[in-house]
Design a protein around this nucleic acid. Structure first.
Lengths: 252, 252
DNA sequence: CACGATTTGTTCGTATGTATT
DNA sequence: AAATACATACGAACAAATCGT
């Protein structure tokens, strides 16, 4: 394989492109294992660091998975949990994540991992409350058996829900708490979808690399009178979930 | 600043954490410029590559922006284009991106950047056609004045739309072509939202780093009879767009 | 406009640590 | 325990972008 050392495109990127082409061609199809770093170093005639930069690029792209002490492997295709929202009926199960595990709802848990009297400009504007009136509660939502996890931040009026965390006996979801302890029946106001890179804290909680793409689902939930109760921002590892908005009748 | 060389957490990560804390504290608030690599190297008493690894981590996290020849800067807060979908009415303007630029729809363009007789398992299953019957068309959608861009792949029946690309006179969107050249009036069947990392090709087209989080919006569009016309997969730079699903009446 | 100073980008070389088999 | 493979860190050199003189 020839590399253009004078090209304006760096050597490590050229190597990444070549390896990506070989992956697409299914070159290492069976085991899915790429040649080791020393082998690639020898083949391309470059420094090991340069090879590592190429591999790191492919890892960030999601093309390969690097396993310490084992090797570099072609990334397996992901299977996303699908969460369907019916546009017409507006009927969506509370909490959404229930839908992915509707057959195992009792295995669902939500655990508080942190809270602070900390506002957020966006939360403030969506709730119509000054930043100083807000508290933030961070939780991990997931299945007992799976390593899977979802990270959520809620912002609530701290004058009204100041004792929320102390009332939060583990392993129940927030809608359940609000129903039991405050008599509030929640409904959706709106939900937004966007994508961000995992920050240092996200990385810790979700067990993904810094910069890993996260699907962000934020929004406001309201009580029966339509008054806002909280603003939430939920982050899912991007390759694990897909929200589907269905416009036509599902034909039932 | 003290670093634990024996800790199980790498030095470059400890440095990244310290820098992140300083960013959160607003330490370099005015100019937003962090100390130069040589300065950080001196302060932490480590190699320059170690400092660079820390900065690269923060860059991937979206905390800083690195500019060649200039320096490292605290990342400015992003402003997303918001695209609102009304869940009740099911009425969404065709193409969606129109909504972000509804005041400048004539400045919108869609340009074919590639096409191939190439199927896709997912496209195949959603369209109910064998992989061999599909063609793929890749386009860039954006504004003439902006660097902003959206990358889209369409999969269509190549027996029915084999001459689509040749009929695609530049700067028009696909729905417009299908209406003009084939007499098809499109409608949504469903749309999905997920997140992926930018691959090498995505990176080129969108002008973002490899691994950059992309919001993926895929789905099937149908004709008036409800028959599928194409499956599309559209990728947006994550920090630039937010889709909003509104459940309650907008109060008009 | 040219040139140098500053700052980040790329590449090489080397050594040692840690996970896996 | 030894061999293999990836992870971290240090030192050095030159390239490329930016900016002021």
């Amino acid at each position: 394989m020839q590399l253009n050392r004078r090209e304006d495109v760096p050597v490590y990127r050229q190597i990444a492109l070549v390896l990506q082409q070989r992956i697409d061609a299914g070159e290492w199809g069976a085991s899915g294992q790429l040649p080791t770093e020393p082998l690639l170093t020898a083949e391309f005639g470059v420094n090991r660091l340069t090879v590592r930069q190429a591999i790191a690029e492919l890892e960030r792209a999601g093309s390969v998975v690097v396993r310490h002490g084992k090797g570099v492997f072609v990334a397996p295709p992901f299977t996303r949990a699908e969460i369907v929202v019916d546009a017409a009926s507006q009927q969506v199960d509370m909490g959404s994540v229930h839908l992915t595990v509707v057959e195992a709802a009792d295995q669902l848990y939500e655990r508080v991992v942190g809270s602070a009297d900390e506002g957020d400009p966006e939360a403030s504007s969506h709730l119509g409350l000054p930043v100083a009136h807000l508290q933030r509660v961070d939780t991990i939502l997931g299945l007992h058996d799976a390593t899977a996890a979802v990270l959520t931040s809620y912002w609530l009026d701290r004058h009204r829900f100041g004792d929320l965390v102390s009332r939060w006996a583990g392993d129940v979801t927030l809608p359940a708490i609000l129903r039991a302890a405050y008599g509030i029946e929640l409904g959706y106001d709106w939900r937004g979808f966007s994508a961000v890179a995992a920050g240092l804290a996200d990385s810790e909680h979700l067990g993904v690399a810094v910069g890993h793409p996260l699907l962000v689902r934020d929004g406001v939930s309201v009580d029966e009178s339509g008054a806002p109760v909280y603003y939430l921002r939920r982050r899912y590892p991007g390759e694990r979930v897909k929200f589907i908005l269905r416009f036509r009748d599902s034909g039932i």
